[in-house]
Simulated scan of single mutants.
Amino acid sequence: MTEISFPAGTTQNIAFNATYSADWSEVAKQSQDVAAADVSDAKFMLKKYVGEDDTDAVVTKTLSSGITKEDGKLTVTLAPSDTAGITGKYFASLRVFLTSGNVQDFEDTDFTLPHIIVNITRGSVKAVS
Results as ranks from 00 to 15, higher is better:
68 T>P: 03
85 G>K: 12
39 V>E: 01
19 T>Q: 07
75 T>P: 03
38 D>C: 04
81 S>Q: 09
94 L>F: 07
17 N>S: 14
31 S>Q: 13
88 G>D: 03
18 A>Y: 08
103 V>C: 09
34 V>F: 01
32 Q>G: 06
66 G>N: 04
70 E>C: 02
77 T>V: 12
50 V>A: 07
38 D>Q: 08
59 V>C: 06
22 A>E: 12
13 N>F: 12
43 K>W: 08
103 V>R: 10
108 D>A: 06
92 A>N: 02
126 K>E: 09
2 T>C: 05
29 K>Y: 15
101 G>W: 01
117 I>E: 11
76 V>R: 08
100 S>G: 00
37 A>I: 06
89 K>Y: 13
63 L>E: 02
80 P>G: 01
109 T>G: 14
126 K>L: 14
45 M>W: 02
125 V>I: 13
10 T>H: 01
124 S>I: 08
98 L>Q: 04
65 S>F: 05
52 E>T: 09
22 A>L: 13
29 K>Q: 12
55 T>C: 09
15 A>Y: 06
36 A>F: 06
96 V>P: 04
41 D>W: 05
85 G>W: 00
83 T>S: 10
26 E>M: 13
91 F>C: 13
84 A>C: 02
11 T>Q: 14
72 G>W: 01
13 N>L: 12
36 A>N: 06
31 S>E: 14
96 V>C: 05
115 H>P: 07
40 S>N: 10
47 K>N: 07
57 A>G: 07
41 D>M: 03
48 K>G: 15
39 V>Q: 01
67 I>Q: 01
10 T>A: 03
108 D>M: 02
120 I>V: 08
58 V>M: 09
89 K>I: 14
63 L>I: 13
74 L>A: 15
106 F>M: 14
17 N>M: 10
77 T>C: 10
66 G>L: 04
78 L>D: 00
89 K>G: 13
